[in-house]
Amino acid sequence: MTPYAEVIGSPVAQSKSPAIHRFWLQKLEIEADYRATEVPGDGLPEYLERRRDDPHWRGCNVTMPLKQMVLPLLDHVATDASAIGAVNTVVRAGSGALSGHNTDAGGFVEPLAPLLAERHWLRMARVIGTGGAARAIVHALAEHGFVIVLAGRDRAKARSLLMQLAPEGEHHTPPLEHFASATDFAFDDREGCLDLVINASALGMQGQPPLAFDWSHAPPGAIAYDIITDPVQTTFLRRAEAAGHRTIDGLAMLIGQAAAAFELFFGRPAPRQHDAELRALLTR
């Protein structure tokens, strides 16, 4: 039997993870496979129990809506995943024990690394979304000294998330609709500051409602970051570019988090020298 890993969630058919992992497996000539498996929330316990007994199963990536639901079903949760309160990667040990990890935070930070190596007078991030991916992003932002403005459909959930993941600092939770209409706010001098505007929600994804964000709410020089990968070039990013902002698309985070998971599954670093070829494959 061939060793394999997979991505689970509901829905999962649109996931780009199989294409990414199979690309790397082929480049490294590893005899293994990576699949997509539909697993609804109520089927998660049974799924994990079946996989525990499969010696060929290396683990799985976990996507919506399972990233928090999976936590109590695991034997061990890594420190980062425990702090974030969400797991996106499950790895099977030889004994059948299951350990949970979160590679979303590292994947999110990866394209920002050159900027985070610089010193800033102020770092501020406006974040849309309060789901599992947003938890990892808020955790990473707090670790790197950002003031966080977190907006979601449920303000109470946003406040709770900040209290859990970023209890220190003067963070804010405006209503989501605050960003929908134009503002004439006069931003102060942003030289020496790092400003991010991050869509960490499903808004703007294929089949979902659009994200209503007016770019007058972003200071000059802000960077737009959208974690959505379907489509890769979202309306959010197109409007940011039209307003003169730099952009980071969802493939950056997706490939970064996948690389960390790949090494956990297959014991080899992902061949990142082929990133340009991989991006071309994913955007056909």
Rank of each mutant, 00 (worst) to 15 (best):
L115S: 02
L115G: 02
L115A: 09
L116D: 04
A117T: 01
E118I: 01
E118N: 01
E118G: 02
R119Q: 12
R119T: 14
H120K: 14
W121N: 07
L122I: 08
L122A: 06
L122K: 11
L122G: 01
R123D: 01
M124C: 11
R126E: 14
I128H: 09
G129L: 09
T130W: 13
A134Y: 10
A136S: 08
I137M: 10
V138Q: 10
V138S: 05
H139S: 06
A140Y: 13
A140W: 05
A142C: 15
G145W: 05
G145N: 10
F146Q: 04
F146E: 05
F146R: 11
V147L: 10
I148Y: 14
I148V: 12
V149C: 09
A151F: 03
A151L: 10
R153S: 04
R153P: 04
R155K: 13
R155Y: 11
R155S: 12
A156C: 08
K157Q: 13
A158M: 04
A158H: 09
R159M: 15
S160C: 06
S160I: 06
S160W: 06
L161P: 07
L162N: 07
M163I: 15
Q164L: 11
Q164H: 10
Q164R: 14
L165Y: 06
P167E: 04
E168R: 13
G169K: 11
H171N: 14
H172R: 05
H172I: 08
T173I: 06
P174V: 05
P174R: 03
P175W: 09
L176I: 03
H178T: 08
H178C: 00
A180F: 02
A180T: 05
S181V: 07
D184P: 02
D184A: 09
D184V: 01
F185I: 10
A186L: 00
A186G: 01
F187H: 00
F187V: 00
D188E: 06
D188Y: 00
D189L: 00
D189P: 00
R190M: 00
E191T: 00
G192L: 02
C193N: 00
C193K: 00
L194R: 10
L196E: 03
V197H: 07
V197I: 07
N199A: 02
N199L: 01
A200P: 01
A202T: 09
A202K: 06
